[in-house]
Nucleic acid binder design. Structure first.
Lengths: 252, 252
DNA sequence: ATTTGAAAGTGTTAAATTGACACGAAGTAA
DNA sequence: TTACTTCGTGTCAATTTAACACTTTCAAAT
């Protein structure tokens, strides 16, 4: 058994633990996810598209790492973030972004990496993706048009979708995917996209309105070639009141 | 930045990643959890009681590690197991069990350890805890009498309880905590323990029976100083049939 | 033998929730 | 003015939920 000394340097990347982010968006039609294109050079193994992610530093906790990766990538802070879980086969290979660095400190380019996956919900108008140090190209993809991803990222994406599906049945987190002002139809389509099944329009509206967590604005949609829709906003204050009074049935 | 070479030895413990198990049981009165006593020697920091856990090997995946720890501890295989998530502050200290080993290979006894927590459900008659290489003492504790645990284990326990609570609202996993033959009252108390709220007896029984996933045996309870209860067993086959036909409403 | 104690088992009703279902209204574009 | 598109709205039957109390059956004690 090898027993070389390896000092833990605090502000160094930990070569064994990474964070991957499933960043969900909603283009008002479909649920989307932010993917990076790792490029097509021959050194890559498997599909080009991958979830954004990176190794964690030894002096940050896992949630911080997820927020950091997210901010580095999107510039957004304080956005809705939920852990999906830990993933990691022994044969999982390390990220391209860190491959060179890893090679410089270890004998093998393929390391045992555990990744902790998170999913996050962003309002698309708040963020237009652009290339970064992470990836040559980056962009939104429609979630259910994705068939494969690099590493075990497809599996992670499926797990994240499932978590989101379960969560939205219990808590009204969908508003994190919509602009501040939205229509009931948009909310309706959002729920259908996430739950992957049709919901009756009138029943949906009845149910949402009874929750008393959205406020009707005096404003209407403009410039649409049909009857303009009433705009609403999420009533955060009211929602807090309700949950603090033990009300927890926001279910679908 | 230090860049010493560190070869990844496959069948060696990974000093950065551990698995902790929240092993739930049910003593027919309360929900219980298996804890180890780390002993009272002065080298220990914080509370004596902790969740069982251990570092993972580089050549096993995380689920395998959890099953291994579980089998080493209880001798049980193939029991219900669900991931809670990854935990790990930068200042988290490593396990006693491995402290000496860790000290032998690294400069600092306190390492950055990420732990992946699991919860499992065991039928108590199947397992009577006994001391092992893990711990001097080991035993069941009533879940809601626990106020503190070593490391961040209390936080993990709370998260596991919450996951279990959510899960049992959706899937009939409670049977994993009961003996093969059980009474409706026992099942009733189990649900109340997990959900931490009273459930009306008659409504509970009606609801369970309508699910058609328990079978009434011809046998009754014996030797009790009151009217003996009908015994039931979980109908695994029927349950599979229902789920495969898309039925998914086992909710509470 | 009788009594006592303790949990088992059982049904109804009112209220709330769900699911199914169709058409007039309000805007833009041609 | 017409055509097109989406918005917005109510009822009814079926199902589900919540609240509620008394009799039965056994063992143990007297």
């Amino acid at each position: 058994m090898k027993k070389e000394l390896k000092k833990v340097v605090q502000n160094e990347l930990n070569p064994n633990v990474s964070v991957d982010c499933v960043i969900f968006g909603f283009d008002l039609e479909r649920l989307t996810v932010l993917l990076i294109d790792r490029g097509g050079n021959t050194k890559n193994i498997g599909p080009r598209l991958a979830l954004p992610g990176n190794l964690i530093y030894n002096n940050e906790n896992i949630d911080q790492a997820a927020n950091r990766v997210l901010e580095e990538l999107t510039g957004l802070k304080d956005i809705y973030l939920e852990q999906v879980g830990a993933f990691g086969d022994p044969n999982r290979i390390c990220k391209d972004a860190d491959r060179e660095w890893l090679q410089s400190i270890r004998a093998e380019p393929e390391a045992r990496v555990i990744t902790v996956a998170y999913y996050t919900l962003v309002k698309m108008p708040d963020y237009a993706p652009q290339a970064s140090s992470f990836a040559k190209t980056i962009g939104w993809a429609s979630v259910n048009q994705i068939n494969e991803l690099a590493f075990d990222h497809f599996e992670i994406l499926q797990a994240a979708k499932e978590k989101l599906k379960q969560k939205i049945k219990i808590q009204p987190i969908g508003f994190n995917l919509l602009p501040e002002k939205f229509t009931l139809s948009q909310l309706h389509r959002l729920y259908e996209s996430i739950l992957e099944k049709p919901l009756d329009k009138r029943n949906f509206r009845r149910k949402i309105q009874k929750l008393e967590i959205i406020t009707s604005l005096k404003e209407k949609q403009r410039g649409v070639p049909h009857k303009p829709s009433q705009l609403f906003e999420f009533n955060e204050v009211r929602y807090q009141e309700l949950t603090q009074n033990g009300f927890d049935n926001f279910g679908f």
